[in-house]
């Protein structure tokens, strides 16, 4: 089993719904505007601004960028305390109570997907009482990032066990895939031939970010064709 995600840029409108859903689902702190200006915005799912072409024919577009969950993650190798590791299902997970906050993984990540809790996580008034109870709010001084909504996987597994059946394709979907209004984000098991992602990953349109680094990302983009 190898969880993976396919993002179809043909369908993606760049609306940012996935980023918002992710933020709410995972209790990602909402930092103050002043902090945000310093570059301390916390986003597990970020919107990358891509410029294509030169001025007269310039195209600007926004593409979603979760953690790539590399098969050869540069971040897990450098962690001195095993606060980040790749589990058997291919998810690059974070262990928050283990992290010592050295930020080496952030420096080593070529995709720059990790965020750090510079202060104690804060939420606007009212929102602090509406955090998702399934996800722990991180303490100050640790690194965090997209986990493919691993808590949803645990719940789906328990549900399947309770119903005495195997996990089905639709059982486990991260918040971004769930929320996407155009169905551009597809999630599933890359090794399972019945899953949609398996087919999409082999599409001729499939490409990975910074593929030449050999990190083997498990997030696959389907490029646009005009």
């Amino acid at each position: 089993m190898k969880w993976g995600m396919v993002i179809d840029l043909q369908k993606c409108t760049g609306c940012g719904e996935c980023a918002a859903a992710c933020k709410l689902e995972n209790n990602v702190a909402i930092v103050e505007p002043r902090e945000s200006e310093m570059g301390r915005t916390m986003l597990w799912m970020d919107m990358l601004t891509i410029y294509e072409g030169e001025y007269p024919r310039l195209r600007v577009r926004q593409i979603p960028r979760p953690c790539m969950h590399c098969d050869h993650p540069p971040c897990t190798k450098v962690c001195p305390v095993r606060a980040t590791y790749m589990n058997e299902e291919g998810i690059v997970a974070q262990i928050y109570p283990q992290c010592i906050g050295c930020r080496y993984c952030m420096a080593a990540c070529p995709y720059t997907v990790k965020s750090f809790n510079w202060y104690k996580p804060s939420f606007p008034p009212g929102m602090d009482r509406a955090t998702n109870p399934d996800v722990s709010v991180r303490p100050v001084g640790v690194v965090e990032k997209c986990t493919f909504c691993i808590h949803r996987l645990q719940m789906a597994k328990e549900q399947a066990k309770f119903e005495a059946r195997d996990l089905r394709e639709g059982d486990f979907q991260p918040a971004c895939a769930d929320s996407c209004p155009t169905g551009a984000i597809v999630f599933g098991d890359l090794e399972n031939r019945d899953h949609q992602v398996n087919h999409l990953a082999h599409s001729p349109r499939a490409e990975k970010l910074l593929e030449d680094l050999g990190t083997e990302p498990k997030v696959i983009y389907l490029k646009e064709v005009d």
Binding site: C79, P80, V81, R82, Q98, C99, I100, C102, G141, V142
Partner: peptide, 24 residues
């Protein structure tokens, strides 16, 4: 490096759960 840590209170993790794989 200890001053630089976000969680210096967890420095003992280096001793009990350290990984020689990391250049640190």
């Amino acid at each position: 490096p200890i001053i630089d840590l976000g969680r210096p209170d967890r420095i003992s993790h280096l001793f009990f759960n350290g990984r020689l794989q990391s250049p640190l």
